[in-house]
């Protein structure tokens, strides 16, 4: 199934987010070899150049390392993984605070809401 993309952000950034979640959630485990750019582009139904750009971005984040002849691998560094996980969680929390703020809730009230779920 092709991946879904929103229209308000660059596609490559959304691919990066999608793959980060796949890695953090364990779909790809530590040190595992990732499918090739071509295979991933086909899976996501996107342009291979866009997938390539997303991969470069992931490499820069350290979450993915590239070995010239054998392909790309998920990092074996647990610290990098933990950091990415935390930064993604922060992003989701900020999104929540922003959305709930628009409804008129203060950050304290927002926390209370979470506790009561």
């Amino acid at each position: 199934m092709a991946w879904n993309f929103l229209s308000d952000r660059p596609i490559y950034i959304q691919i990066v987010e999608h793959l980060k979640i796949d890695i953090i959630s364990g779909k790809y485990s530590l040190g595992e070899r990732l499918p090739s750019v071509r295979e991933l582009a086909f899976e996501a139904a996107v342009n291979p150049n866009t997938m390539q750009r997303a991969m470069s971005e992931l490499e820069e984040s350290g979450l993915v390392t590239s070995q010239r002849t054998t392909g790309r691998f998920v990092t074996e560094n647990v610290e990098i993984l933990a950091r990415s996980k935390l930064s993604l969680a922060n992003q989701i929390a900020e999104d929540y605070l922003h959305k709930i703020g628009e409804l008129g809730y203060s950050p304290q009230e927002a926390v209370e809401l979470l506790k009561n779920i």
Partner: peptide, 26 residues
């Protein structure tokens, strides 16, 4: 859109606008 790198808008026989898809989104 998701398979394109670049786009060219044409209208009435002329180029109206062109660029990189992800640049427009950014």
């Amino acid at each position: 859109e998701k398979v394109l790198d670049d786009f060219v808008f044409i209208n009435k026989g002329q180029v109206v606008m062109s660029g990189v898809v992800d640049d427009v989104r950014a």
